[in-house]
Amino acid sequence: MSTFLWVIFPYICLAVFVVGHWWRYRYDKFGWTTRSSQLYESRLLRWGSPLFHFGLLGVVGGHIIGLLIPQTWTDAVGISETAYHWVAVIGGMISGIMVMVGLVILIYRRRTVGPVFSATTPMDKTMYFFLALVIVLGMWNTIASSIFGLGGSEGHSFNYRESVSVWFRQIFYGQPDASLMTDVPFGFQLHALVAFFLFALWPFTRLVHVFSAPVGYITRPYIVYRTKDEREGTGVGSRAPGRGWERVQ
């Protein structure tokens, strides 16, 4: 069972994540959008959306630091476990609270504003449920482990960097050790599993817009020029020419 949960399941989810995105990008570029509802309502969105998104950027940054950077590295540059812990807790709490408040505003808005609610698809609702679940579990883990000392020992709070983070990195090395996760507090286990499930759901939801973050905007020229037959493989029309009918260059 633990092999399934901590080895097979994550790989299935990641495979669906990767292949799903490839497939969606290949076949549904037109459906690849943020599906903004600002036109319907902007008073609540003006607060909810930036809170949620900026908070989430903090959360993602925190996860990158916590999961991807090995403890040995931070030890090597002389950051003590206690110092790291407090930075992580304070940063995590601030971002987490922003995300929670934003999420509550956004869900309230989505449910109560008629036009926004009627523009919500079943897939949106499913996604919202799992996204909220992951966030709530993550928030609970932060509070429970660091403040109430859940899962900790001898006055230290639970150090996920010795178990969860190692296991997470091992997934990408191709050799995850399921035993690292079996003794982790239940909240952390659930958070990881639901997060992986969310990854599997990702390509089929509006979450794909994350991968459209327009960072290229900073460097590209303001005005874009294009010629009619520029797009590769599409010839001059909206469809690719049949084999043997490509334009002579």
Binding site: P214, R220, I223, T227
Partner: peptide, 13 residues
């Protein structure tokens, strides 16, 4: 076109 973050708005040459 200059405001479009995605670069989706273009001017046909």
């Amino acid at each position: 076109a200059a405001s479009c973050p995605s670069g989706a708005i273009y001017k046909r040459s």
